[in-house]
Design a protein around this nucleic acid. Sequence first.
DNA 1: GTCTATGCAAACCCTTTGCAGCCAT
DNA 2: ATGGCTGCAAAGGGTTTGCATAGAC
Lengths: 137, 137
Amino acid sequence: MDKPKVLKMTAQRRVILEELKKDRTHPSADELYLKVRRRLPDISMATVYRNLEILSEHGLIRRLWEGGGPRRYDGVTDDHYHVTCERCGRIGDVPLDAVNGFLAKARGVSDFDIRGYRLEFYGFCPSCRDELAKDTD
Amino acid sequence: MDKPKVLKMTAQRRVILEELKKDRTHPSADELYLKVRRRLPDISMATVYRNLEILSEHGLIRRLWEGGGPRRYDGVTDDHYHVTCERCGRIGDVPLDAVNGFLAKARGVSDFDIRGYRLEFYGFCPSCRDELAKDTD
DNA sequence: GTCTATGCAAACCCTTTGCAGCCAT
DNA sequence: ATGGCTGCAAAGGGTTTGCATAGAC
């Protein structure tokens, strides 16, 4: 959670990184743990989680689909997108028409049968933007 | 989980739907529960969850950011997108260049300070596509 | 009457955290 | 030597489920 200044390269960290780098299946922490444990039988799940967090904070790996909190619901079913405030979590509407063009492009470069997409924006809501501006004064 | 044929309109379901429809904050199940409970003090959390699931299956409400399972990680940090198989959960790469154009558009219609977006595709992976084709024979 | 919906509580999955000792730098 | 790292076990948040009963159709 609190990012340390130096990254110590322990055996656990190195193996986690190596196994993830050579894995092309986008594994979950759990799946990766199973693979890593073949090389380091005593490693704990907590270490895997901690390292995945630290390594992605440092940009050495990528974490897919952020969005840990609770799921949210919308009573409005019309087509529109959402913005999430990175500071307070508030969600706003983005009343854009469906964006197209990249569905066709995506189909061209994937062997999946692509049926749709999910798009969401992130940034700061008006009041958090103001708060943050104050801090930089 | 097993979608029933008929939707019975119980008091609980009606109130959940009404409260969500008039709420513009994209509430979580928990937040909605608090509001609903003002009108139906004996309703249980499980009912709220079950109805949110059923109502979104029926298209009466929308569930934001699907993606319940575990978080997944990618050892490749180059810019690219992902497809999720809706049947088996497998994840593939979509080696598209960053799509732009809609960031500017989104900024034009939102009062948020939009800093970025997340885009992911969904559909069926090659083997699930084949399996599904078999079923329709 | 039938079949779906409910409340309750327990189970569940995934992830994070406190702690005491360990180890890379 | 010091600060980051580890394993363990326990706690945490959010969501789902089994069961018996109630209620909509």
